[in-house]
Amino acid sequence: MALAHRFCSPSTHPLLPESCDLAVVLPFRNAQRWLAESLLALVNASQDLRWQLIAVDDGSTDQGGHLLRRLTAHWPAQQCILLRTPGIGVAAARNLAIRTTKAPIIALLDADDAALPRRLQAPLHHLRANPQLSHVHGGWLRVCPSGQSLSTVEPWRDGAAFDLRSALTHKAVLPSAWTLRRDALLAVGGFDESLSHAEDVDLMLRLAAAGHLGQWLKEPLVRYRVHPSAASAHTSAVIDGLAAVVDRHLIDQPQPWADQIRYGTLTWGAWRAWCSGDQLLALQTLRRARLSCPLPLVQRPVHFLEHISRSCLRDGIGFDRTSFCESSFWRQARELLLQPL
């Protein structure tokens, strides 16, 4: 009884699908260890809202679906809809949930993340007050598996925005902090189900290309859990997937600027691989990056060093510049960057 009380839905009357203020789309696979915390945070963030949870158990082999059913068994009818799919991928799972609900606003959430108290109300109120906007995005707190805070991510401070050029430059998107109008999602075809990585970046770019307006909510809305089992941990596939999505959207862009974006994307990939401890992949990715590098030879090492330093600072990763500059990785990277094409 105590457990059920903690997960009590704020809705105390029958909820009709067409009367929802918004729907939370929650895909998951083998996320049993996170679901209770995620669901409790979601309930705490949904006070005074008419909301609906559309959860998709996408081929789990643990008891996550059973746990979700148990924790929401006492909720009003239609408050929680649990769909089961055989492992169709996160893009297809989200699209299925979006098609299932009739709510006009979609708040995305991944099962290993936890909503902060204003996760639902702040975006809903902002979209209602600004009908010209198709989507809004908040910042996020990066936390370790135990929940300890690592850093606060505020992409707007680096100039990230939602027009096509800014979106291609920064590619700043976290689904769990993103809220969109359902009509806008349907207008651009939802998530691209052929993509297994960077499907969120691709959607953001397609929204921008179609003229849909977005805006930052300049506050953190979610606790983003960084852990090895997360989909974003598969470094090589993440780098290749993001590079492919970016290339897709650069086809009609001017060559010098397109090269700059490709270089920035792949140097981020090299940093990501270095952070994961895969120095060979980092050097391979840097070798790909230099093919599009717009910088003079002499500027390339300094630029990459500053990129490493800023990226570590942004993500709350300790960076010792002296030790890094004395490392064998930096020596190889510098030699690579100084090689003429």
Score class of each variant (00 low, 15 high):
A23H: 07
V24Y: 05
V24C: 12
V24G: 12
V24L: 11
V24M: 07
V24R: 07
V25C: 08
V25T: 08
V25Q: 01
L26H: 03
L26I: 01
L26E: 06
L26G: 01
P27L: 14
P27T: 15
P27E: 14
F28G: 03
F28C: 03
F28Q: 05
R29N: 04
R29D: 00
R29L: 05
N30Y: 13
N30Q: 15
N30M: 11
N30K: 12
N30S: 14
A31Q: 15
Q32I: 01
Q32V: 06
Q32F: 07
R33D: 14
R33H: 14
R33A: 15
W34N: 12
W34V: 05
W34R: 09
W34T: 11
W34S: 13
W34E: 13
L35A: 08
L35I: 08
A36M: 07
A36Q: 11
A36G: 11
A36S: 15
E37M: 03
E37V: 07
E37W: 03
S38F: 05
S38P: 03
L39E: 01
L39A: 06
L39Y: 10
L39F: 10
L40A: 12
L40P: 02
L40H: 12
L40Y: 10
A41R: 02
A41L: 02
L42Q: 14
L42K: 15
L42M: 13
L42V: 14
L42C: 13
L42F: 15
V43A: 01
V43K: 03
V43H: 01
V43P: 00
N44I: 00
N44A: 10
N44G: 01
N44H: 09
A45G: 09
A45W: 02
A45N: 08
A45Y: 07
S46D: 01
S46W: 01
S46G: 04
S46A: 15
S46R: 04
Q47E: 11
Q47I: 07
Q47K: 14
Q47L: 11
D48N: 15
D48F: 09
D48V: 09
D48S: 14
L49K: 12
L49D: 11
R50N: 04
R50Q: 05
W51Q: 09
Q52C: 06
Q52R: 13
Q52D: 04
L53M: 05
L53V: 09
L53D: 08
L53P: 10
L53I: 11
L53Y: 10
A55S: 09
A55N: 06
V56H: 01
V56S: 00
D57E: 05
D57G: 02
D57M: 01
D58P: 06
D58S: 08
D58Y: 07
D58N: 13
D58C: 09
D58T: 09
D58V: 08
G59V: 08
G59A: 02
S60Q: 13
S60G: 11
T61W: 12
T61F: 11
T61N: 14
T61R: 13
T61C: 10
D62L: 04
D62M: 03
D62V: 02
Q63I: 03
Q63V: 01
Q63L: 09
Q63Y: 12
G64I: 06
G65R: 02
G65L: 02
G65S: 04
G65Y: 04
H66D: 06
H66C: 01
H66Y: 07
H66S: 03
H66P: 00
H66V: 07
H66G: 01
H66I: 06
